[in-house]
Simulated assay, not measured.
Amino acid sequence: MDRRTILQGAAATAAGVLLPASVRATAATAGETDYPAAHWVPASTSNYTVSTRPSAYPVQYVIIHVTQETFADAVAIFQNPAKQVSAHYVVRSADGYIDQCVREKNIAWHAGNWDYNTRSIGIEHEGYVDQPSYFTNTMYEKSALLTASVCDRYGIPKDRAHILGHVQVPGTDHTDPGPHWDWVRYIRMVNLLGAA
């Protein structure tokens, strides 16, 4: 999309014209993402809580999820105001492409536990817990870079006590990321790829 189209999209948005999601995402400035490699595709404001983290709540965890949906369907769910769910990021299986759907300062509704929602960044990964072919090398690498960045920015230790699976969140019945997620490999990558 060229600069003119982006500017027209921004002007239309300012005028209150509802644009297609693809145009809204491109019209957003790069400064709207907390992670430079992510693309801004906002969740519905009905699906997260506005906050001022880390001043309102400390950010102490990264929670790893698996979508149980395709990448596109997961993002569409977060944009649907009736769904009451979101995550900060979604990572695509094939190429590690990352959408940011909720700003990190805000509280995404991903953990199924309010206390953990307030203190974590949620990262969804395209795939299904019983289909390990979705967990590609590129997905692991791009996700590990993202998690390392989050940990470095908030001073989160890069270990399994602070990088959690959704299954570890108290009071939920989720099983993701499931038995095929390679935690040893992932934590090693997060530590190797991080700045600290």
Rank of each mutant, 00 (worst) to 15 (best):
I121Q: 03
Q168C: 02
E124G: 04
Y134Q: 00
T138G: 03
E141R: 09
R153A: 09
W109G: 01
L145H: 15
S133F: 13
V102A: 07
Y154P: 02
G155C: 02
I123V: 15
Q79T: 05
K142N: 15
N80A: 08
E141V: 10
R103C: 10
V169C: 02
Q84F: 10
Y154E: 01
A108F: 13
S143A: 15
S133P: 09
A94T: 11
V85E: 11
R103Y: 07
I156E: 08
D99R: 14
E126N: 02
V90M: 14
Q84K: 11
D115V: 15
R153H: 12
S93K: 02
C151T: 01
V85C: 07
K83D: 09
T136P: 04
L164P: 03
H166D: 10
Y128Q: 15
A144E: 02
A161P: 04
G165H: 06
E104W: 04
V167D: 08
T147A: 07
H125F: 09
I163M: 11
H110P: 11
G155K: 09
V167H: 08
A148I: 12
A108M: 11
S86E: 06
P81Q: 14
Y97F: 15
N137W: 12
Q100E: 11
Y89F: 15
D99F: 11
L164I: 08
R103K: 14
I98N: 00
S143F: 08
I156P: 05
T138Y: 07
V150C: 06
P157V: 06
Q79N: 04
K105T: 09
V169D: 00
D95E: 13
G155E: 02
Y134A: 00
F135A: 01
